[in-house]
Design a protein around this nucleic acid. Structure first.
Length: 284
DNA sequence: ATCCGATGTCAAT
DNA sequence: TTGACCTCGGATC
C-alpha cells in the first residue's frame, strides 16, 4: 500500500480526526499492548509524515496558536512504518473484528483507525525521532525539502538512478511506482549511473516528484499519465487493478507503451520489479 | 482450498 | 542475493 503519498495522506487524516482530542488506544492483538495502555485516554497532538514514516505525537505540550512551528515536542511518539503489506484503515467505530491481526486501534466516538501488518509500530522519544529523521533524504512532499542534499549523493554515486531513487537516505518517500513513473516521464534509462546524470536531469526528476506526489496525496492513488495519454484521450480501457492510478509503465510489462507502442520491459532488480520502456528511455 | 505477489526494509549469507 | 517478516486480495486448482 505505501509510498510516501499514502503516509502523508494518513498523517493529514489522523490530524483532522484526532488532533487535540483524547483518544482510546488499544492493541487487540496484544503486540503493542504495553504502549497502548500507556497512551490510552491521552490527547493526540498531531500526526506527521516523513517519507514513508508516520509519527503520531502524543506529547502533552499544546501547540501554540502564535507559533505553529513551536519548539519540538518531547513526545512520546508512535512510530509507524507500514512496510510492504501494512495497512492503516478507517473503520466505523464499534465492536472490533479481526482482533488477531489488529496491532493498534485509535478511536473516538466518531472515528476509528486500525493498523494491521506494519513493519514497525513502536513508542519512541525525541532522540529516536531525531535519529530517524537524520537518516532520511529530502522528502518531495515536505515544503522544507532540499533537493540539493539528494543531488549531492546522486552525483557522487556510481549506483544507478533506479537504485538511488529507492534509497530512502537519498530521497524519502519514493517507492517502486514513483521510481518507474518519474524515470519514464523524464525519459531516463533506469541504469543510468548517478555520477553520469546531469544536474539538470536531477532537477527534472525532483520537480516531477514535487508535482506528482502531492497529486497522489490528494487523490489517494498514483496517477502519472499526461492528459494526452489518458484512457479518454486515447480511447483505451481505464486501468482496473487494485493499485488504482493511470500509469505509463508500472506493472504494464508486455503491454504497449502509451507513447511509442513498444512492449514495456520488466526485470528483477534489487529484489523488486523494475519497469521501463526501452525505446522511450534511452541509455546514454 | 491454496498459492502468490505486493506501493518495504533489514539481517544473514 | 536471499530470506524473513507481517497481511490480504486475486488468481489458480
Amino acid at each position: 500500500m505505501p509510498e510516501g503519498h499514502v503516509i502523508h495522506r494518513l498523517a493529514d487524516e489522523l490530524t483532522v480526526a484526532f488532533a487535540g482530542r483524547p483518544v482510546r488506544v488499544t492493541s487487540p492483538q496484544g503486540r503493542f499492548a504495553a504502549a497502548a495502555e500507556l497512551l490510552d485516554g491521552t490527547t493526540l497532538r498531531a500526526a506527521e509524515a516523513y517519507g514513508k514514516h508516520l509519527l503520531i505525537d502524543f506529547g502533552s505540550t499544546p501547540v501554540s496558536p502564535l507559533e505553529p512551528a513551536g519548539p519540538p515536542s518531547p513526545g512520546p511518539f508512535v512510530h509507524i512504518h507500514l512496510g510492504l503489506i501494512g495497512k492503516l484503515r478507517w473503520v466505523r467505530p464499534g465492536p472490533v473484528e479481526g482482533a488477531d491481526t489488529l496491532r493498534l486501534r485509535i478511536e473516538t466516538d466518531q472515528h476509528a483507525a486500525e493498523l494491521r501488518g506494519p513493519q514497525t509500530c513502536a513508542l519512541i522519544g525525541p532522540d529516536e525521532v531525531a535519529g530517524l529523521l537524520a537518516g532520511l533524504g529530502p522528502d518531495p512532499l515536505r515544503a522544507d525539502a532540499d533537493p540539493a542534499r539528494a543531488w549531492q549523493r546522486v552525483h557522487r554515486s556510481g549506483r544507478s538512478i533506479a537504485s538511488l531513487l529507492m534509497d530512502q537516505r537519498v530521497a524519502a518517500g519514493v517507492g517502486n511506482i514513483y521510481r518507474a513513473e518519474v524515470l519514464y516521464r523524464q525519459r531516463i534509462h533506469p541504469d543510468t549511473p548517478g555520477n553520469t546524470l546531469s544536474a539538470r536531469a536531477w532537477q527534472r526528476i525532483w520537480a516531477d516528484l514535487v508535482e506528482l506526489m502531492p497529486l497522489g496525496v490528494r487523490h489517494g492513488r498514483i496517477d502519472t499519465v499526461r492528459p494526452e495519454h489518458t484512457p479518454e484521450a486515447m480511447g483505451r480501457e481505464p486501468r482496473v487493478d487494485r493499485h488504482g492510478g493511470e500509469v505509463y509503465v508500472y506493472r504494464r510489462a508486455g503491454q504497449p507503451c502509451l507513447v511509442c507502442g513498444r512492449e514495456v520491459s520488466v526485470r528483477a532488480f534489487e529484489g523488486r520489479n523494475l519497469y521501463w520502456c526501452a525505446r522511450c528511455q534511452r541509455r546514454r
